[in-house]
């Protein structure tokens, strides 16, 4: 991605980074709406996952394009690696804590083998 700038005119680069920023912000808002709208804790966890992964990635990628090939880009890359490395651990710990505090998954059908019949509660 960083090898591109010299080949492309600045305007194109700006447009690309703007598109990435808009996409990332849109995903962020989608995730937040999902966190507000989804019915129970476990489904909200998935919505929060959207904001943690692709949304953060797109916003930081947009910023990277603006920074060009400098130390700033490397720092942004490190932030991205941190977020992608820590967010599954945090999600997993959240889900585990929810299990231990007996947060019941609303209307989740339970499958033990590969296939199972519909047995929705709630």
């Amino acid at each position: 991605m960083d090898l591109l700038p010299p080949l492309f005119p600045d305007l194109l680069l700006d447009l690309l980074s703007m598109a990435l920023l808009i996409g990332g912000v849109f995903l962020s808002i989608s995730g937040a709406v999902g966190v507000i709208r989804f019915p129970d804790f476990y489904t909200r966890l998935h919505a929060a996952g959207v904001t943690d992964t692709l949304s953060a990635g797109m916003i930081l990628a947009g910023l990277m394009l603006q920074a060009g090939f400098t130390l700033v880009t490397v720092k942004l890359l490190f932030i991205l690696i941190f977020l992608w490395y820590t967010s599954p651990v945090a999600s997993h710990a959240l889900a585990r804590a929810a299990m231990h505090t007996r947060v019941e998954p609303a209307e989740a059908e339970v499958i033990d083998a590969d296939q199972g019949d519909e047995s929705s509660a709630n």
Partner: peptide, 8 residues
Amino acid sequence: TLTPGTVA
């Protein structure tokens, strides 16, 4: 966990 939609 990292792919949204599924959590371990």
